[in-house]
Design a protein around this nucleic acid. Structure first.
Lengths: 350, 350
DNA sequence: CTGAAAGCGCTTACAG
DNA sequence: CTGAAAGCGCTTACAG
């Protein structure tokens, strides 16, 4: 059943049927009702989105391109919040969300795929979240359509960011008010290879301008400096994926150090990391904050209803998503935006 | 830049350019390479997905229609696992995921929207997850395209289910081996209105054939019966949304009952509920399992790395998603499927 | 308020 | 291996 079919059966032109669905003001109320009723009766569900999008050049679809795997992004609280904010705006404006992933789990796709934008070119606009592994995917997206980066910079495109460096400086300053015997930093992906464990001089760090982890590390280091602790003396552990399972392997290594080598303050770059420390410390009878103080980053819900609550930086990822979506839809100027954060003092580092 | 443009510039027909992108075997290797190279040089990113989908009738997009709000679904561990399983299969077969929600947060959309399938008609197939509020949305979807229900039944369509009744019977039997003084049931949405609190005779329950909560309740009741406990004597609390915040209001009410009225065994229909009980009980100095035994449902990760681990039913939602996606793509027969579950004994109810 | 006609950008038999 | 042509289902000026 097509619009043309329907028009023939009803003895009107296709333009009239189209108007019945799209421009109520272009035909009489009675005729419109008649057409809609007959459409329903004959099983015509309305104009086909494929044809419509070709004709109008608009699909009412916005794609979110996620740097991480979809599996990760769907299960991570921060990514989920971002998506929540994006969909909130899209919903309100009659758009829907297409999910694309930059980091395919294992896709030995045929070489042909290289020259195909796939369903990406369906979307009216794009939100790109996180540092993509390579620029290939981004270069395949239609260059003329709006594209907004979140949490990392793309040349010649607007970005939505938070103030990572000052936020980390602030939380570290709070933590360092009470002088620790030994500090450690648990970092999210800081280096350019898949690796979990202590970072040493040989490791090649990711480009500072493009990653949030470098900014966060800079904030920590500035605070350490100001408190007369040599940043180079503070060990940094790299965690390649922000999941309980991956965090746990690195953290166990740290918590199982002899008590005199174990840090009594851990600055973590995510709440997920800090929460995993909390759980594993509990299991080992290490008391937080008495034996080990702990800061997180993100301010996710899970960190705020457990006891002890995390001391952390609250970032409003939902708002980040809203802003990005509004830029893509042209509802606000497409320019770089820096969103603020808030220090949250919990019991994990009072 | 269009395919036609490109063909003109290169002095070949549009068919040849199209074949260069889609059917490598239809032209010489040298010509193909030449075309692809020139395409790149001239900024042509490959055939437009909109036109292609109109022509071929395939968009390589599969839509997931979620009964709950996207906000909820993206933040819930079980929904996220389902989506993970779906995207895994879609990715492997070159499809992408479109997210639709049945339960719009607040959308006073103009009446016109009623007669529009919107971008839904873009998709090649549909996975519908959970009981939709009303059949309207489903009836708007193109009837000829594959559609698979998950966790609830749609007339004349295949469904992927788990064995809710037997699973709940089994976990309740386990819990009732040690006779409780007083049992309570914490149920997910069981009644046909937004309500949080004790369920009484006046409440209208949702249709038994369509909801998983009724099946789960039946399983609990059968076990109670077999253990000589009158099911009608066991209070049931309704929780309208499976989030920490909503669960907490109901649970606080229960935990704050005088000790002699408070249940010492709570059968919960989700791990989220059970975990919230755990957190709130901890805060009140109620010991689990000594003062209060607790069972969950789902087997989400968060329940298995905390101490005490939850006693729960593990359902493999990722597999549920895989199966549903494979059915939609026609990779396996579109027929009703019942997936098994596994009883997980943790310390919350040994 | 209604209809005839062009064309969105592509793919696919089909003829050469 | 290549090209000319039809047509996927719709929307939109435009003329009446």
């Amino acid at each position: 059943m097509t619009l043309k079919n329907l028009a023939q059966r009803l003895g009107v032109s296709t333009a009239t049927v189209s108007n019945a669905f799209n421009r109520p003001d272009q035909l009489s109320r009675a005729l419109r009702e008649h057409i809609l009723e007959e459409a329903r009766r004959l099983g015509y569900r309305g104009p086909d989105a494929r044809a419509r999008s070709l004709r109008t050049g608009q699909s009412r679809i916005v794609a979110v391109v996620l740097a991480e795997t979809l599996t990760y992004s769907l299960n991570d609280a921060v990514s989920s919040e971002l998506l929540t904010g994006i969909t909130e705006v899209l919903d309100a404006h009659g758009h829907t969300l297409l999910l694309l992933s930059g980091r395919q789990p294992e896709s030995p796709r045929h070489a042909d795929a290289l020259c195909h934008p796939g369903s990406a070119s369906m979307a009216d606009g794009f939100v790109v979240y996180g540092l993509m592994p390579g620029d290939r995917l981004i270069n395949e997206l239609p260059a003329q359509r709006p594209l907004v980066g979140v949490d990392f910079h793309i040349d010649a495109r607007p970005t939505v960011h938070i103030d990572n460096e000052p936020a980390c400086h602030a939380i570290a300053c709070h933590a360092l008010k009470k002088r620790p015997r030994r500090v450690g930093i648990l970092s999210l992906r800081l280096i350019d290879e898949s690796y979990n464990g202590p970072v040493s001089a040989e490791h090649r760090c990711l480009d500072a301008h493009r990653t949030i982890t470098r900014s966060r590390l800079d904030g920590f280091h500035r605070a350490l400096d100001e408190h007369d602790i040599d940043p180079t003396s503070v060990p940094v552990w790299n965690i390649d994926e922000n999941t309980h399972a991956v965090c746990a392997t690195v953290i166990e290594e740290i918590l199982d150090l002899p008590a005199e080598q174990r840090p009594d303050l851990l600055l973590c770059m995510s709440d997920r990391i800090a929460l995993t420390v909390l759980t594993l410390a509990e299991q080992r009878g290490i008391r937080v904050p008495e034996d080990l103080r702990l800061t997180g980053f993100d301010g996710i819900e899970e960190g705020q209803y457990r006891a002890p609550r995390l001391t952390t930086v609250r970032q409003d990822s939902i708002e980040k998503g809203r802003v990005a979506a509004r830029m893509v839809l042209g509802l606000e100027p497409a320019e770089n935006r820096l969103l603020g954060t808030r220090l949250l003092i919990g019991e994990s580092c009072p």
